[in-house]
Structure formats: structure tokens, C-alpha cells
């Protein structure tokens, strides 16, 4: 079947997207493009619709208007090329299962109906656990893992999906410094392999050092583009309003590229 591609040069293309909840707009008229091979951050105040944006791209929440394409095709046709890391708090970690089993779940889409994961799947899952440094915890009950370890397991589950575009919802929330560093390293490696990584992020301090593409969101798009151009005091003020006063402006706005060096391992 031949189908003309819509904006094939973009890894993610979102046009006129509107999402509402109880007739209140959560996302309003979003136009958002991400070129392939970048690490993109999505920031904005609480309730700005950051998670909702990711979920509506993945078809997890109904949209009122607008369309989304990934590498030129709608999501339904591109599922196998997408990896997803939901918020860690969205699941019950007391569920009776092991770390390896959770990672194997990333392969269920490829396996299809009625087929059970076999040795090959277990090996792939094990390799992904090794990538995130969790191979020694493969057989561990997931409730016994620390927050950072749980997040790594979730990341490994997305890695086995062998995707071209990765969506991560607050992967750095509530994890220790070591895990944050490990996660960022893995995401950078993915980007360097030419994959596209899109991250909902909450910590403005690290935006400059982690990302090369940025969307500032507050129900509407406030600004988007390369981090250098978009990450300005003015844009942040427009997105965060009064809340910006709570943050130490000088600490993050005036940081230039020298900050990158300071981010090196202490």
C-alpha cells in the first residue's frame, strides 16, 4: 500500500492539536515539530499538559482536533518505531513480578497474540538490563527495587522496543544522582545513534546541559526550537508567570555553555 507521507523529514510532527477534559482545554492548538536525531525536552509549569501531550501523541488520550505524524505516518502505522517510558508513579510497584519480566513486556507488541516470550526474548531483555546496569537485579521482585532502579527497569523496557523515537515522561523525577547520570548517558547514546528522544522534564536547572531541542509549554506552545534560542528568561517568564520568582533566575537563565563543563562528573 502506498501512502503519501506527511512531513516525512520530521521525527515528530504535531499540528493544531487540542485536547480537553470536562470541556476545559488541557492543550490548545499545539503545533510542535521535532527533527530526527535530537534530544528534545518538554518543560512547563504543573498542569501545563506536558504528559498529556505525550499521551495524545501515543493515542492514549482522545484528542478533540489536530493530527500527529511520526516520520511521516500516523502513530498507528508506526507503533513498532516508538518506545515509551510512562511516569514511574503510574503503576503499582507491588505487582507480583520481577525486573526481567517487566523488561520483557516491552517485546509483547512484537510477539503478537498467543505467543509467549521464550529464550530469545529473555536474552534481549537481559541485554537491555545490562545496558542500564541492572543485570544483577533481573530476578528481583520489583517492589524491592529503589525508585532509581525502578526507573532504570522502565527505561530498559523501552530499550528492548528498538525504537526510532522514544518518549519519556519525567524519567528523572525522584531518582538519585547516579541514576539520573546513567539515564542521561543512555539517552545521549541513543541520540548519537540517530534516534530521537523526547523527554518531559521538570528541572529547569539541567535543561541547557541535557537537551538540544526544547518545547516550552503552558496549555499553548510558548516557544520551541533549538535550546540556545528558546531557553530565555523572557520565554520562561511567559510560561511560568509568577512562579518564576520562586526560582533563582540567575542560576539557570544566565548559565552559558560553560555550564556544560561544570556538569561533568564531580
Amino acid at each position: 500500500m502506498t501512502q503519501s507521507l506527511h512531513e516525512p523529514k520530521l521525527a515528530l510532527h504535531v499540528e493544531d492539536l487540542t485536547v480537553s477534559y470536562h470541556s476545559k482545554p488541557v492543550l490548545w492548538d499545539i503545533d510542535f515539530d521535532v527533527p530526527p536525531g535530537v534530544m528534545a525536552g518538554i518543560v512547563g509549569p504543573n498542569g501545563a499538559g506536558k504528559s498529556t501531550l505525550i499521551k495524545s501523541v501515543l493515542g492514549l488520550v482522545p484528542t478533540v482536533a489536530g493530527h500527529v505524524t511520526l516520520h511521516g505516518r500516523p502513530y498507528k502505522a508506526q507503533r513498532r518505531r516508538v518506545g515509551y517510558v510512562p511516569q514511574r508513579s503510574s503503576v503499582d510497584w507491588d505487582f507480583p513480578t520481577t525486573a526481567l519480566d517487566v523488561v520483557t513486556m516491552g517485546l509483547y507488541g512484537r510477539l503478537g497474540w498467543l505467543r509467549r516470550p521464550g529464550r530469545r526474548e529473555r536474552e534481549e531483555a537481559m541485554a537491555a538490563l545490562e545496558l542500564v546496569g541492572m543485570q544483577d537485579y533481573a530476578g528481583r521482585q520489583i517492589s524491592q527495587l529503589s525508585g532509581g532502579q525502578q526507573q532504570r527497569v522502565f527505561l530498559a523496557r523501552a530499550l528492548v522496543q528498538q525504537a526510532d523515537v522514544y518518549f519519556l515522561d519525567e524519567p528523572m523525577a525522584g531518582v538519585d544522582a547516579t541514576t539520573e547520570r546513567a539515564i542521561v548517558d543512555i539517552l545521549r547514546r541513543l541520540r548519537d545513534e540517530g534516534k530521537t528522544v523526547i523527554v518531559v522534564h521538570h528541572d529547569l536547572q539541567t535543561v541547557r546541559s541535557y537537551f538540544d531541542w526544547l518545547l516550552i509549554l503552558n496549555v499553548r506552545v510558548i516557544a520551541q526550537g533549538p535550546v540556545r534560542e528558546v531557553y530565555t528568561a523572557d520565554n520562561l517568564k511567559r510560561a511560568y508567570g509568577g512562579q518564576i520568582a520562586l526560582l533563582d533566575e540567575a542560576a539557570f537563565v544566565e548559565r552559558n555553555d560553560a555550564a556544560r563543563a561544570a556538569e561533568a562528573p564531580r
Partner: peptide
């Protein structure tokens, strides 16, 4: 049962 959202993202 474990993660309905992820299941939906896989197309289940």
C-alpha cells in the same frame, strides 16, 4: 493489569 497505559501504547 500491571501497566494499562503501556499496553495501549503497544496497540493492545
Amino acid at each position: 493489569s500491571f501497566d494499562a497505559e503501556f499496553a495501549a501504547s503497544l496497540g493492545l
